[in-house]
Design a protein around this nucleic acid. Structure first.
Lengths: 366, 366
DNA sequence: CTTTGGCACTCTCGATGGGAGAGTGCCAAT
DNA sequence: ATTGGCACTCTCCCATCGAGAGTGCCAAAG
């Protein structure tokens, strides 16, 4: 399973092998109880609630051992135990009973996706909404676009109202359009008839020059063309601008309210840094290096995250799309005390579903 | 001034005329002090901080009068006074010293807007960001689109890679495009060469039928066309879908963190209902009826808002764009204890600026 | 050698109870 | 009409104090 390689890659110690069965079941019980109640869990309560066939004293000693291993911690003497980040990690790696999503859940989700069109933002908004609703956490979805949009080809279309439309098809199959500013064009090509053939020629010339370039490369190439005719200059500037704007990733989030409901964020100011990070459009992008190794679901727990603001939250995320041409990310964010056995299958299902949809779209379009 | 008509339209009592000069200046001082400190303000502190040339006892009696008029209130006996919604209303109507925005502020804002292109979402994101930053409140911006997008004209363009692009120009000047699903087209028109002239004919036919219709009307009209050739059916379905998706308004918000910083929202759960309302894309839409009367800045204070969730916040907002073809809304949301003298001019300036930009764009494009 | 019951100890949490401080309301004097 | 004085009323902060829950350790029992 994908997650199992995770810990080692991350260089985290892996004391799983040394754990006794008792330690394992105590750790599991502590994690699951704490996830449920948000209250540090004591030996007695644990025995009662989980029907362990041993005495509280035995559990206590197991807990002490787990604490020595760094898997549990004490808020203070004589409070119950709380899982450490490492404890959660071990739980996620090998203790968790992970169930796939219900068939009904899957059908509901799939149905919702059939209602919106693939290229629209609604698609991503829906994904964020489904993730947030299903996991009751905050969710984040980035569009599946190549990190650096490559120039595919360019076309200038005459619209019926007399204006021109610049259509830019990117290497990853995405399309953007922009209406050309007619008065500016006339400024650039004074007295010219703005006939379609001239524009076609311009487009053809640029298509040849720019094939396969990213926006910055386009800018450089264009500046090098020694004598750029004025009319081309206008189109070219618009073009670069348009390509640039595609690269800026819009991020869709949903379900922030769920995080707010968690007791660890009852104090509003706790949420602030999280909100700020979620706003930043590139925060999921930083995770791209982490997931190139394999395609599955990734879990980042608390302080495992290099971003200081995220030391008290966990991230469960996965890529979707094709890594080489259009990579998107989707995931959920919640307190480290997160329902991993729910979050992980949900993220996994959504990433495979969106993969499937996106690939069938590509299949048809090409 | 626009705001002055507001209170009467709203049917709110208007005790302004009856207030003595002293009462007016006490009310103003109370509002301004409370807005600044968020602490109920007492008579003594008021005299000290605002250099009133009277004794605390005098202020006390003025406060008691203002309280009898419903302009101030008491959290409890022997705490200071707090403005009521009505008190804020009166302040906004006739007590506030409203300054226009700095020239430097204006230039900075204008410069930022010159950096992004008008048709992109970045334009709206920028507006939200500027509003939030300048007022230190949460901001909301809706795109300037006619509430019901009207069909303008339709064009089918052959792309260089062999696929087709459906370009839909709406009555308000907005453009959306969608790549036509080639395999589906082939299904609809089996064995056909998909030549451009056939598609042009289709487009021409639909242009004639659908001119000026809204998406629902389009749907009805299309279903009535007795014998819709298969090839047109495919295009038509895509078309309606596209037009539908334009009507769904995306809302841009920013600066929620600022609200979180306010002491009245320190307790996270207070923020919840607000967040939920902000998420709902139609919440600003509900305000459209309110503002048709005139074009200026509107202020809705606390319980004046019919939405229960908004009873503890104020809204300062304005329309932009042309009411008949493309109406957008922008505004800020904060605690009733809001810096109105800052928020109102900012919203006003942004709405006029965006008006100007949008109209110059229309001017050039037509 | 593991498990268990017992026991002393520790720490949080909630209730209780004063001051201290800020503010009010009222009244009599100016 | 304005003001100073004064008694009164709240909140807020702090300290105190059990109750409760949990721990750690130890000696006894499997």
């Amino acid at each position: 399973m994908a997650e199992e390689r995770n810990a080692r890659q991350r260089g985290a110690p892996d004391p799983a092998v040394e754990l006794t069965d008792r330690q394992r079941s105590v750790l599991r019980a502590v994690v699951e109880d704490y996830v449920l109640t948000a209250v540090p869990v004591g030996s007695k309560a644990l025995v009662n609630r989980y029907g362990l066939r041993v005495s509280p004293a035995t559990v206590r000693s197991a807990m002490a051992e787990l604490e020595a291993l760094g898997l549990l911690s004490h808020p203070h003497t004589s409070a119950g135990r709380v899982p450490s980040d490492l404890g959660y990690r071990l739980y996620v790696e090998s203790l968790m009973r992970e169930a796939e999503l219900d068939t009904t859940d899957r059908l509901t989700i799939r149905h919702q996706f059939s209602q919106v069109q693939l290229t629209s933002n609604d698609w991503l908004r829906l994904a964020a909404s489904v993730l947030a609703g299903s996991t009751r956490s905050a969710s984040v979805v980035t569009p599946a676009r190549s990190r650096r949009a490559r120039f595919g080809h360019l076309q200038i279309v005459a619209l019926a109202d007399g204006s021109r439309l610049l259509v830019l098809v990117l290497g990853d199959g995405n399309i953007t359009q922009r209406r050309l500013d007619r008065s500016a064009l006339e400024r650039a090509v004074p007295g010219d008839a703005l006939d379609q053939s001239a524009l076609d020629a311009t487009a053809g010339m640029l298509n040849g020059e720019l094939a396969g370039l990213s926006a910055p490369q386009m800018r450089r190439r264009l500046s090098k063309l020694p004598t750029l005719p004025a009319r081309i200059g206008e189109v070219a500037a618009t073009l670069v601008e348009e390509a640039d704007s595609v690269v800026v990733e819009e991020v869709f989030t949903d379900g922030i309210v769920h995080v707010l409901e968690q007791p660890e964020f009852a104090e509003g100011s706790k949420l602030r840094p999280i909100l700020e990070v979620l706003q930043r459009s590139d925060f999921l992008e930083q995770l791209v290096p982490v997931l190139t190794r394999h395609g599955g679901v990734h879990v980042i727990i608390g302080r495992e995250n290099t971003n200081d603001a995220m030391h008290e939250v966990s991230l469960v995320f996965a890529p979707y799309g094709a890594p080489d041409r259009a990579l998107g990310l989707l995931g959920v964010l919640g307190p480290t005390r997160m329902r991993y056995p729910r979050a992980i299958p949900t993220v996994r299902y959504l990433s495979t579903l969106m993969n499937e949809l996106i690939n069938s779209e590509y299949g048809e379009a090409q």
